[in-house]
Simulated assay, not measured.
Amino acid sequence: MGATAEQYLQQLDAGRRPDLPESTAGTLRLDVRDEGSTDHWYLTISDQQVRVARSTEDADLVVGADRWVFDRMVNGELHPGAAMLRNELTVQGNMRLLMLLRRVFAGPSDARHPRELGQSAMDARASGRTGTDPREELS
């Protein structure tokens, strides 16, 4: 298993995140429930940066779920939208910020950007390779 949500949030770098839209700004509070207690994580997103604090302050979006749900989202095993539709998490506030969690969390360690996969497929066709798997390494 990969990192837990707590481990990931504790080490989340406050540097620039080019994968976040430049024009997006807002605050998210993650209410992580575990065995009768709740941990609160407060994320401030602006200028393609994410700052993390521990706070119960009001936020533009409040997301609540059991610890295992956040752990799976951090590791790219669960999409926030799918979790919401299955009632595995609750949301209150600005819903457009919910999709930012997918970009804030790291995702699977072996994930590749769709453009990279597409480029690999195009390169394979151009070189006359017959393999159908665009993830194959090019020689």
Rank of each mutant, 00 (worst) to 15 (best):
R96T: 02
Q49A: 10
D66W: 08
R103E: 00
Q49W: 07
G76W: 03
Q92W: 13
E116H: 00
R112H: 04
G26H: 10
G131M: 04
R16N: 06
V74G: 08
L101T: 01
A126F: 11
L85I: 02
R72S: 11
G131L: 09
M122H: 02
V91A: 15
D39T: 04
G26W: 05
G15K: 10
G118A: 13
T38D: 08
L28P: 06
E136L: 15
L12C: 02
R33V: 09
P108Y: 12
L117Y: 01
L98F: 06
G131P: 09
N87S: 13
A53M: 08
P18D: 03
V62G: 12
W41M: 09
D19K: 05
Y8H: 06
Q92T: 06
V63A: 10
L97N: 06
L98Q: 12
G2N: 09
D47M: 08
M122K: 02
L100V: 14
G26L: 13
P18E: 01
Q10F: 01
S23N: 07
R51T: 02
S109Y: 01
L85H: 04
A25Y: 00
N75E: 09
A3W: 03
M95D: 04
A111I: 06
S109K: 15
D31S: 07
D39K: 14
T27D: 07
T38L: 14
G128M: 05
L9G: 07
L30G: 03
V50D: 03
W68E: 12
P21R: 00
A121S: 11
D19E: 12
A14S: 14
F70P: 00
V91C: 11
P80A: 07
Q119L: 08
T4F: 00
L12H: 04
V50T: 03
E137F: 04
G76L: 14
D58C: 06
